[in-house]
Amino acid sequence: MGVNMSVGTTMSSQPVSVKTTDAPTPSMVSIAKRQRLQDVVFHRLTQSLSLLVLAALLGIIVSLFVYAWPAFHKFGVQFIWRAEWDIVNEEFGAAIAIVGTLASAGIALLIAVPLAFGIALFLTETCPVWLRRPLGTAVELLAAVPSIIYGMFGLFVFAPLFADHFQVPVQKLLGSMPLIGFMFGGSTNGFGILAAGIVLAFMVLPFVAAVMRDVFEIVPPILRESAYGLGCTTWEVVRRVVLPYTQKGVIGGVMLGLGRALGETMAVTFVIGNANRMPTSLFSPGTSIASTLANEFGEAADFHLSTLYALGFLLFVITFVVLSAAKIMLLRAEKAKGL
C-alpha cells in the first residue's frame, strides 16, 4: 500500500508536457499575408473601375453642359419649351424635339410592353418544352439586329404598307369624327410620329421580352407548384406569385426598353418625317432629339452646334429623370409592402 502511494506520488509530481499545434507555421503566415494582399488589390481594382465609370459619366455631363452653355445662356430655361427652330436667324427651341421623342417612345412602350409580357408569359408558363428554346433564341436574335436594319425595314417595307393599309382606311373612317378625328389628320405617306413609335416598338420588344422571360424563370418552382396545388389558375399564379416576386426585374426591363426608345437614332430618323414643326396628329411628321442630332450635327457650326449639344444634354436629363422616377416607384412599392 505504501509502495503504491509513493509510486503515485512520484508520478503525479512529474510535469506533464503538452505539445501545442495551434501556433502558425511560417508557411501559414505567408499564405495569410498573400491572401490579404490579394483581397486588398482586388478591392482597390474594382473600386477604381467603379470610380472610373462614375468619372466618365460626370465627364460626359460636364462636357455637354460646357458646350451647351451658349445656348442656355441666350435662351435660358425657355429653351425647353420654345418651338422655334430657325437656323438662319439662330432662333432655337427644344420643344418640338422633346415632344417627338416622348411621343414616339410612349407609343413604342404602349405597344411593346403588353406584347413582351405575353411573350415572356408564354415562354415560361404555357409554352411546350420542345418550342421553348427555339422561340426564346429567336427573340434574343431579334434583340441583336442593328438599328439601321430596322430603319431600312421601316423605310422600304413598313412605310408603304402602313400608308396603304392603315393610314388611308383609318383616316377615312375616323378622320371626320368629333373629338378624336384630329388625331388622324395629316398626310398619309407612311411617315410620322405613329410610324416611328411602331418601328421603335419592333426594336424595344425583344429587349423587354428577353428580360421579362429571364426574371420569370428565376421564380422558385415550389412557389408555382404550391399555387397550382391550391387550385389557382395560370393567370392567378402569374398575378399573385410571379409578378410580385419579379416586380423589380419587370420594371427594370421596361425601363431598359424605354431608354432604348428615347435614345434611338437611325430607325427613328428613317420614318419620323424629320419636320421641325410641332406634330398635330399621329400621322404628322415630326422629329426627335436623336434624329435632329443625326441630321444636323455634321453640318452645324458655332451657335447651331451649341444648341445641338444642349439637345443632347436635355436627352440625358430626360433619361435620368425617367430612371429616377422608376427607382422611386420601386422604393414606394417596397415600402407599401413593408419590405
Rank of each mutant, 00 (worst) to 15 (best):
A326G: 14
F75L: 07
Y228S: 09
I289E: 05
V168W: 05
L131Y: 00
Y228R: 13
V41G: 01
L311Q: 09
G263N: 03
R36N: 13
I119F: 00
E299S: 13
P178S: 06
R332W: 11
Q38K: 14
G231C: 08
I180L: 10
V208D: 04
F316R: 01
G59D: 07
F316A: 10
S12D: 08
F42Q: 11
M11I: 13
S176D: 14
T246Q: 10
F207Q: 09
G229A: 11
P220F: 06
G252A: 11
V88M: 10
P134Y: 02
G76I: 10
V99Q: 11
F316S: 11
G338T: 04
L52M: 14
F72L: 13
E90G: 06
H304S: 11
L155D: 02
N189D: 15
L115G: 01
V170I: 13
F303Q: 08
V237M: 15
L305E: 11
M152Y: 15
Q78R: 12
V317R: 07
I218N: 06
P134C: 04
N276I: 03
T319R: 02
E225M: 12
E334W: 08
S30P: 01
L37R: 14
S13C: 09
A210D: 10
I222G: 11
E225K: 10
A105F: 06
V170W: 03
S6T: 12
R36H: 10
A159M: 03
I289T: 02
G175W: 09
P285M: 09
A116C: 07
S176M: 06
A310W: 10
L64S: 11
L135G: 01
A23W: 05
L102A: 05
L262Y: 05
F42M: 12
L323V: 08
G257L: 09
G106R: 02
G181A: 05
A326N: 02
L314H: 06
P220H: 03
D86M: 04
T21G: 02
S288T: 13
W235M: 15
A336E: 14
M28Q: 15
F156Q: 03
A210E: 06
I289Y: 00
L109T: 01
L323H: 14
G181H: 07
L49G: 08
T188E: 10
K248A: 12
T280N: 10
A83E: 14
A196F: 01
R213G: 06
R239H: 10
R82P: 05
V29W: 05
V268P: 07
T233V: 12
D164C: 00
A97C: 05
S288D: 02
V219Q: 00
V62K: 06
V199G: 01
T9E: 14
A159Q: 00
S63P: 00
F184M: 04
S147M: 09
I87Y: 03
L64W: 03
L142C: 13
E91N: 13
K327Q: 13
V157A: 12
R44P: 00
F65D: 00
V170S: 03
L121F: 11
F216C: 03
I222M: 12
S27T: 10
E236S: 09
T20W: 12
V211C: 04
F283A: 04
L230Q: 13
I98Y: 06
P244K: 04
E225V: 08
S50I: 08
W85S: 07
H304Q: 14
M152F: 15
W69Y: 15
A68S: 12
